[in-house]
Amino acid sequence: MNFIAWMIVGCEIAFWIVILLGLTTRYIAKKEKMGFFLLALTPVIDLILLLVTGIDLYNGTKATTVHGIAAIYIGVSLAFGKSMIKWADEHFLYYVMKQGQKPIKRFGREHANHGLKGWFQHLVAYGIGAGLLGALIYLLNDSQQTEALSGILRIWSLVLAIDLCITISYFIWPKKMKETIKQ
């Protein structure tokens, strides 16, 4: 595995460590401002990955699938970061601190609407990641060097379309609550 691949893995691990430290600091140590500060560091992780990837490509490294995945990671992290932190916050509060409300399970129209909201977040992630990939392709201006980035963009476009089809299916065939079997 190359350096950028390790950076992506490291950034993902760092993302969840920072969230866990932020939540632990906020709820267990009762230091709300410090907890907020730690949670606010998550975009810094993205910036580090962006800089390292950019420097690697600037130094003449041929763009690989891993460089494309770095762009996807940054887009997803920025688009979904706030909702992932909210999800982690709710689950930490309920399951670890035994406080707050149990995280809700969605069914029917509510599930479909939530899925649509997630698809729009995916669209934003795609916009950010595709913008980064497009910028790299344009700046490097060498189709042989950026072939992998173009491939990633095509695959991600397909994934986004499939995600939309799945999201639409939630409206056509709504998720139903499972009935409990009495014995």
Rank of each mutant, 00 (worst) to 15 (best):
K102D: 00
R154C: 10
G22W: 01
W156V: 15
K30L: 09
L140D: 04
V124W: 00
G108Q: 07
K176T: 03
V44S: 06
N2D: 10
L57D: 00
M97P: 10
L21V: 02
F171N: 01
A14N: 08
P174E: 00
G75E: 02
I69F: 14
R109F: 14
L47F: 15
I55R: 13
W156I: 13
V9M: 12
I128R: 04
M177P: 08
E32H: 04
N59M: 08
Y58A: 08
L133I: 11
Y94A: 09
L140A: 01
F120Q: 13
A5M: 10
Y170V: 07
V52A: 06
N59Y: 05
I172C: 02
A135G: 15
N113I: 13
I166Y: 12
G22L: 09
A63G: 10
F36R: 12
K82N: 15
T53Y: 04
I128H: 03
V9L: 14
S157T: 12
E110I: 10
Y58M: 04
M7A: 03
A14C: 14
V9I: 15
L93R: 13
G75L: 08
D142R: 08
V18T: 09
D89R: 02
W16Y: 15
T167L: 01
I168K: 07
N113K: 15
A112R: 01
F15T: 13
I155H: 02
E110Y: 09
G115A: 15
G75V: 04
P174W: 01
E110V: 09
I155C: 02
Q99V: 03
F92P: 06
K62W: 03
L133P: 00
S77D: 05
S77N: 09
L51Q: 05
P174K: 00
L51N: 06
A70V: 04
R106D: 11
A148N: 03
I172T: 01
F120T: 12
F107C: 11
D142W: 03
L153T: 12
L47H: 06
S143K: 10
N113Q: 13
F92G: 07
Q183N: 07
A40C: 01
T61F: 03
H111R: 13
T65P: 07
E110L: 09
G127A: 11
I172P: 00
I166Q: 05
L132V: 11
K178E: 09
I13H: 10
K102G: 01
K31Y: 10
K98Q: 14
W6D: 02
L47P: 05
L50F: 15
H111Q: 14
L123P: 11
D56G: 06
V9Y: 13
D56M: 05
A79F: 03
